[in-house]
Structures are given as structure tokens and as C-alpha cells.
Design a protein around this nucleic acid. Structure first.
Lengths: 335, 335
DNA sequence: GCCCTTCTTTGGACCGTTCCAGATCTTTCC
DNA sequence: GGAAAGATCTGGAACGGTCCAAAGAAGGGC
């Protein structure tokens, strides 16, 4: 009992398979009664076209491969959401590969996605294997979203302006009266950019001497550890700007454990405005990075690039917005 | 400049395309020197088989469709992780459709997945449109994971034992000395099961009179609102068992806002043991629902069902485990 | 009524694999 | 040395669509 094919439909409707194909692809050159007959046969048989046969013949798959760094990071999920909605509207489906979930990211890129002959590729977030992206980008239209690497010839980049975001956060803290401010840094290019924004603003305000940077990672654990180190040091900061919300929550825990009140004893800013920051119990001041919007823009870029693969790569940055919540306030006493 | 085909490889290696196919599929019936010639040609040309052509001919896609309720729920992500790792190991890739991300779930099911002729289908979590699952299950091997509906003829179900989990949580609170306990209920079958477990235990301890149930939903907001109502009532509970961690966090915020200390004035248990519950700042006592494990088991069930589609549907429940953290303690004074 | 257009409709090649029946080459054995 | 038995290899028919050149039908003009 195989699923019906276009020939079955043709036979039932009393026409040729070519005509069925025409009707299904919406040709205007078909007489109404034939069209009706075909559509009725489709309905009666429950016919669904076979995507494999179609892509073999059309030489395209209407599928976009998405390489994601980590599905556990809520910000990426939001980006993915924007991506999906825009691509779906253009009749493209999305095939997801998570670099963390199944480790063999490079393998996935070169094997799965090229075997499937995806029409396009979106790399989301800092990926473990940039070389794999390079290889793939040479064969298929590619857009990098949510990070600024790798920079490659015909590849577009859509990301938040991390340096600006870091400036906003730092300016906010300084504006509140903080002088001794620490930054918990993240990894990769994104980490470097946010750090640079922080350091630049501190320098501009003549506060380089009281700026501290502690290396963390993208997790709560990393933020916690970094904060413990920061607060254990002799001259401790009155404010912390964390690389992302997860690290910010870690910092929150560390402060609490050491008996410091937030924001009274320690002001705290995160980054990404994930739903974590929005939890009433945390209510983290953070930088909104507009993940959904970045996803949509990345999708549009990819559509453009599929239409014209040869055009030069562009970098599009979106401006982040500071979201002030409950974890920032002026320092208790002048530093 | 098209990608090379099996014919190009054959020509280069000086053999027939059939032999190339044999080599690539690992036949033992090929003389070593020919095998080497073929593999060398593959390497030189950078040949990658065309998945569409292969599935058309083999009449299977090596692809499993996954219907997910909500990617934003960390528990589902964990389940997905388990699913992926197991399926990947069996050479199946995963195509993800999120019911919340692109709303048209029913459409996706009947259109995208049937057009792609996926080899199997996994429905994760309570889905908005059970009828679509029913339709699809009639044509393709299907497994339901993480929930216990819909129950369908040849469909397996893999889920946590929600009633048992709720019992564990409730027993824990009673064991600590709580008498007046409230439950924030969730929706759907899962919600009903957890509620039933709670009510059964309360009844067994002769505490039905002091058991309260407040309807919430699966979000923080719902948990918050429900808790505000609970704590505003005349005879307020000393402990709350929330449907899931998100609702539990909402309850935490509500208690804090009303000036109650957790766990001193109010004990709190969540469900799912998501990373939220593990955040040091929240440190929620919760019920571990083993998402990763459920994902793996669902994958294995699907593999079995693909091998033998006609076998009767089975229900496999995994036993959850109570994870005691910082939000539960004995009540301050006997009730 | 006939020829020329303009619409519609159709047969068949093609997309890149797999798989099967049979062809061809090697061995083995008497 | 020849035949039978294996071991290898190959051509061609699927798989289920799209698309193009050409056939057939219908309408228009004289």
C-alpha cells in the first residue's frame, strides 16, 4: 500500500501526469474543469507530493541547514524563532543541527548538510569548528548570525552590536555613581567585543585604574566562580557587568552567599535579556540583544544571498537596548 | 559547475556506476584494487552522495520528524538531546518542528513531514493538535514522548511517571511536618496526573481537608498569580507543590514579594529538575524527570517500531526521583 | 471551408541513486 | 584442457517528480 503518486492522480482524473504537475504548481494555462478534476482526484487519493523526487528534479531542496551552538541558551532559541518564522514564510524549511547536542559538528556540516544539498546555511553563535563553516560556505549560500566570526568572502554576518551593548551597560553603572566596576568576560569574538566596550567606556571616564576583568564562561557556574574571586579580592567592586544573563545569575548567587545585598551592596548587569532576566525573582538589569529580530534579519539576508550568491558579504549590526530592572542602583557610599 | 555524481566517480575510477555504488555501501564482493580506485576517485572529486536521489531510490529517508511543543521549555531540550544522540547513533537525522515557534502545527504534520516521507515521527509533550498526530500515526511509525496522550492504536508512549513524581513531592512535604499543602496545577493530561498523585497522598494521610489546588499554567507568571491567590486566602498553606519548575519560580517570587521566607515560612517543590532549579540562586527542591533518559528510550522505541510497525503500542514509564535542595524545610510551627 | 494563431495538453527525457538479472572473469577440480 | 562453480562486475529498469518540445484543439480571418 504505497502512497499515491502523481500518475495515480493523473489516471483518476483522466489526464496526463504533466497536467497534474501543472495544476499543482498553479499554472494559469489550465482549463477550469480539468483543474477541478485534478484537485478532486488529489483530495480523494490523499495525494502528497514526494519531496525527494521533487528536489531531485528541481535540483533544490527548499531546506536551510541551521547550525546552532547550544540549544540550551535561551537567546539562541529566540533567534531561531525569528529565523524560522521568516524562512517558513518563504517556503523554506529548517533543518537543525546542534553543535553541543551531537558533537560532531564538522562532520554534520560536510556530511549531512552537503548530502542533503541544502539551499542555504545559517551558522548561529560561535561555533567550535570555523573551518567547517568555511568549507561549506564555498559551496552553499551562508549567513552567520549572532556572532561576528568567522569573516569569510561571500558570507553575510548579522549580529548585535556587542561593543555598543557593553558601552550601554557600563555607562549605566557609571551614571549611577559606580567607580569600581568589574566585568566578567566571555569567550570568543563576542566576549572580546563586550570586553572592549567595557574597557573603552571605563577609559573614557578615566576609570581604567578601577576597572577589573575576570575571565568567566557562558555558564552560571563560571559567573559564580568569577564573582567569588572578585569579591574575595582586597579592593572589591561595587558593580559587576556580566557577559550574559547566565553568568549574571551566577554572580547573583555568589553575592548572596557572601552576604552582600543586590543592588545595595553590589549592582549587577547581565546581557541578552533572556527570560531568565525577566523572572520576577531575579529581575536582572540587562542588555536586550533582540534575538528574534536578528533571526529575521539573518533569514532575509540568506534569501537575498540565495538569489544572488556572488554578491559581497555584508555585516549588519543591530543596536541593543538597555533594560533596567531590579539589580542596579547607586552605590551605598561613594567609593 | 555541478557537484560530481556517481557517474563522474565511475568514469574517473574506470568502473561502472554500479560498482561505485557497491563500494560506497560497503560490499565485500569487490576486489581491493577496484575499491581503492573508487575511493581515490571519490576523494579527488570531493564526491558526496545526493540524499534526495538516494531516498527516492531506497524509498526511505533516514530522517525522523520531531514535533516539539515548546523549545523554550528546558526540559524538552533535554529530552531532545537524548533523542538526538540515540537516533544519530543509528544513522537517522532529526527534523525539528516546534509547535509554538511556527504555529501551524497541524499543517506541518500533514504537509511537511508527509511530503518528506519521514521514516518515523516523535511527538514531544502535549501538542495543540492531537488529531494531526492521529492522522500521521496512521501512515508512519510514531512515538509519543514526555506525555501520555494521545493514546492511539500503534503508537508507543514513553514518559515519566507523573503520578509517582507528585506522590514523592507530596510525601516529602508531609514527612517534613507540613499539613496544609497547596498544589499549583498544570494543564493537560500531565497536569491531571500530577494533581491526582498529590490528592491521593493527601487523602491517604487524612489531609484532604487541608489540601488546596489552585489552577496555574506552565509559566512563571501562572505560578506567581496562583501563589498570590493562595497566600491571600484566609487559611494559608505552609507548603506549595508546583506543577513545574517555572511555576515554582513564580511561586518563589510571590512569596518573597509578600514578605514570606522560603523555606522558613513557605516550603516549595517544583518539577522537572531543569537547570532553573539548579541555579544556585533559586536552588529549588524538585522532582527529577530524567528528560535525557526519556529521550533515549523514546528513540529506541521508535527504532523498534520502524522495524516492526504492526506491533501493539506500549506505554513505558520511567520513575522520577526527588531532588531535595534549598526550598523545603519543616514548617516553623505545627499547623 | 481552409489556413494561421493561440491555448491546452501530452509524451518522454532527465534528476542521481539503488538493485536485480545476467554477463564476464577466475578458480577449482577431474 | 574443459566445465562447473564462484567471485566480480555491468547495463538498465525503477524511484516520483519537473520541464520542454511538440501535438492537438479551438478560435479567427478571409
Amino acid at each position: 500500500m504505497r502512497p499515491p503518486t502523481i500518475r495515480d492522480v493523473a489516471e483518476r482524473a483522466g489526464v496526463s501526469k504533466s497536467l497534474v504537475s501543472l495544476v499543482l504548481r498553479g499554472s494559469q494555462q489550465v482549463r477550469p474543469e480539468k483543474r477541478r478534476a485534478v484537485l478532486a482526484a488529489v483530495e480523494e487519493l490523499g495525494y502528497r507530493p514526494n519531496a525527494a523526487a521533487r528536489s531531485l528534479s528541481e535540483r533544490r531542496t527548499r531546506t536551510v541547514g541551521v547550525l546552532l551552538n547550544d540549544l540550551r541558551n535561551p537567546w539562541f532559541v529566540e533567534l531561531l524563532d525569528g529565523l524560522n518564522s521568516e524562512l517558513y514564510a518563504s517556503g523554506l524549511r529548517t533543518l537543525l543541527a546542534d553543535g553541543r547536542l551531537n558533537r560532531r559538528l564538522g562532520e554534520d556540516l560536510t556530511h549531512t548538510f552537503t548530502e542533503l544539498r541544502v539551499d542555504g546555511l545559517i551558522a548561529v553563535g560561535t561555533l567550535p569548528d570555523p573551518a567547517a563553516v568555511r568549507t561549506a560556505a564555498a559551496r552553499v549560500p551562508t549567513v552567520v548570525a549572532g556572532t561576528r566570526e568567522p569573516v569569510l568572502p561571500h558570507v553575510d554576518i548579522v549580529a548585535g552590536d556587542d561593543e555598543l551593548g557593553a558601552r550601554l551597560a557600563t555607562e549605566h553603572l557609571i551614571g549611577l555613581g559606580h567607580r569600581h566596576i568589574a566585568h566578567i568576560a566571555g569567550q570568543g569574538v563576542v566576549g572580546a567585543l563586550r570586553r572592549r566596550g567595557f574597557e573603552a567606556v571605563m577609559r573614557e571616564h578615566g576609570l581604567s585604574a578601577s576597572a577589573t576583568v575576570e575571565q568567566g564562561d557562558l555558564t552560571e557556574e563560571g559567573g559564580y566562580r568569577a564573582t567569588v574571586r572578585l569579591l574575595g579580592a582586597p579592593h572589591r567592586p561595587t558593580a559587576v557587568f556580566a557577559f550574559n544573563d547566565m553568568a549574571g545569575v551566577g554572580a547573583l548567587s555568589a553575592a548572596e552567599e557572601l552576604g552582600l545585598r543586590v543592588p545595595g551592596d553590589l549592582a549587577l548587569v547581565g546581557y541578552d535579556n533572556t527570560y531568565l532576566a525577566r523572572l520576577r525573582h531575579l529581575w536582572l538589569t540587562t542588555v536586550d540583544n533582540a534575538g528574534h529580530d536578528i533571526g529575521r534579519r539573518a533569514a532575509r539576508r540568506l534569501l537575498d544571498r540565495i538569489a544572488d550568491p556572488a554578491r559581497p558579504g555584508e555585516v549588519a549590526l543591530t543596536a541593543p537596548v538597555l533594560e533596567v530592572r531590579g539589580t542596579t542602583a547607586p552605590p551605598r557610599s561613594a567609593d
